[in-house]
Amino acid sequence: MSIIIDKNTKVIVQGITGREGSFHAKLMKLYGTNVVAGVSPGKSEEDVHGLPVFDTVKEAVNKTGADASILFVPPRFTKDAVLEAIDAGLKIVVAVAEGIPFHDMLYCRNYAFKNNCILIGPNTPGIISPNKSKVGFMADTIYKEGSVGLISRSATLSYEAVNNLSAEEIGQSTVIGIGGDPVQGATFKDLLPMFDEDPDTKVVVMIGEIGGSDEEEAAAYIKDNMKTPVIAFIAGEAAPEGKRMGHAGAIVSPGGEGSAEYKKQVLTEAKIEIAEKLTDIPTLCKKILN
């Protein structure tokens, strides 16, 4: 099995007439994602890769029964597009854009929660359940179906980890990029219970980084609730205090709050195994899977 998305998930693409939207709609379809329609206001006369295009999300949902949406929409229009998707009743929304003002995201996250919508992102490659469905733009060839669940703040580090796992014939149930922003939709803690309930996920890999306290929140949850073992990796032990390290959310506060060292300490105290290097992840997974 997998979490959040599978072969049956009906997906619409907001911004499908744009360059990225059109390109990735095609790639998602090729992968086997059940893409049912696109949305692009004022462009409903067109069709893109044989998919109908609607002016509004509501129309698309009414005509196709869609469950999920992915947004290939510029940062400044993302808030409106996310709220439109939630308002139309969608329960899975993936926002990939980087550079969304944090006040916009704060609103979207809280609105999504009130409507039981799983919001993924922003600043994410999306979500993939290998061999079933991908709602995102990741290079899908590196993924293999299997029993490792993976959640990552960084896109590139999730590719690294997946590549290392697949090279050792260790497949994945679902891989989710939650994004590198200080405020995002679903966090580690929001997604861990779903993996815990998935009978096919035997181990969860959590790839965190400096900044904020999402890893610490997850550690407390894991300690008290999780039956499935969790392995954690934290990037940024060499990052100096007070510098934003590329991701908007990757910053160690002056005084050391949000440091890799502190996060690892909290995770270790919660009896969560730490992968010191990315290449340690497959070895640790194997130990649990065998």
Binding site: S152, R153, S154, A155, T156, L157, S158, E160, G180, I207, E209, I210, A235, G236, E237, A238, A239, P240, K243, R244, M245, G246, H247, A250, A260, K277, L278
Partner: peptide
């Protein structure tokens, strides 16, 4: 991001760059 060492790291993602920095350390 300006730092105080002597290697320029060019990468295609923030996470990958941070991990490279960790490894350098």
């Amino acid at each position: 991001i300006k730092l105080n060492g002597d290697v320029a790291i060019i990468s295609n993602g923030a996470g990958l760059a941070i991990s490279t920095l960790d490894s350098l350390q």
